[in-house]
Design a protein around this nucleic acid. Sequence first.
DNA 1: TCGTAGTGGAACACAATTGTTCCATCACGG
DNA 2: CCGTGATGGAACAATTGTGTTCCACTACGA
Lengths: 182, 182
Amino acid sequence: MTSGVKNRTRQAIIDAAIDLLAGNPACSLGDIAAAAQVGRTTLHRYFGERADLLSAVAAEGGERLGRAAILADLDRGSGAEALLRLCREYFDLGSLLSLMFSDQGGECWESQDEHSLIGVIERGHADGSIDPALPSDWVLALLWSQLYAAWEYRAQRQDASRHHVLDLLTRTLSNALRPPQG
Amino acid sequence: MTSGVKNRTRQAIIDAAIDLLAGNPACSLGDIAAAAQVGRTTLHRYFGERADLLSAVAAEGGERLGRAAILADLDRGSGAEALLRLCREYFDLGSLLSLMFSDQGGECWESQDEHSLIGVIERGHADGSIDPALPSDWVLALLWSQLYAAWEYRAQRQDASRHHVLDLLTRTLSNALRPPQG
DNA sequence: TCGTAGTGGAACACAATTGTTCCATCACGG
DNA sequence: CCGTGATGGAACAATTGTGTTCCACTACGA
């Protein structure tokens, strides 16, 4: 299948772009091509300009976020429980976390997912699992910042297992969101 | 005084560099010079290479962090109380927060201040104001990530007053660090 | 008034990145 | 075996950032 090879190459480039852009948003296309084990010519054949690659990366990020949200089964349990499940799914997105975080939000993928996330948080406000004194967008900012912190923490300390870091993240986040006399 | 003018120019360049580098770590020296209302020639007169300017920015950041730590009077009260006071001082560092955060730690200024911060956290572990199950470096990562989140939150929502954001930050951070049955 | 410190602008060479074109090579199916 | 799709490499022009040099201008004090 001819398009099979093309799709595989395209995906390899996007994957490499995510990894490298996460560490350095200003990295060169040559570096990305090298990381994807692909000639720079080939990269330009798939993505005419740098902006085209960035768009594809954003689209890929949006898809992965969407899949994670589905896996988290956001409609089940209390708002806080759903948020913590989502947190675990997001954590496995790896270097994509750094990329979303350094791009400081405001991307295309946010528009749809962010809306549903706000809904989950408001459900938590209503069912008493999330402190109503915390605005929804502050809770969202908290979720992302702690996710990023956990990802960096894991990157710096290789001795910390995925499970251990995830446990720390869950504990501090659920504590941060807990209502006063809950 | 001749050196008075020089010091003022030098400081203006460093201040502009902090503001611009916080938003874009790869910004050009021309942009920084323009923001400092200084010719690019003058900037190069003070800082021969880009690396020299970055060093000066790091040094300035270290000094500001150190002053904030002194203002926070870290030896007073419980470990958690001291950490929250420091948090309030750090919050006023403004765009410097973004810079420290995006530079992902590991700078020269960390070596001394980080050590004393670890001490404060361990004091909190001992006096029961900080959950001993949370490793010191995780608490540190949490502090920085929530500070950054609060700064970005304030930047996005101009309607949120400094006091309000600081209140949200204090509440979520102290909750996150609180021991289980405290 | 004159000299000097501080500055800004123009111009230059240099390096890195980007986007493009052209050609050679390799794998696979007919 | 041959044609086609996919690729990699070399070379190129254009752009941008960097670092430097040189000259003119302004303010200030002796």
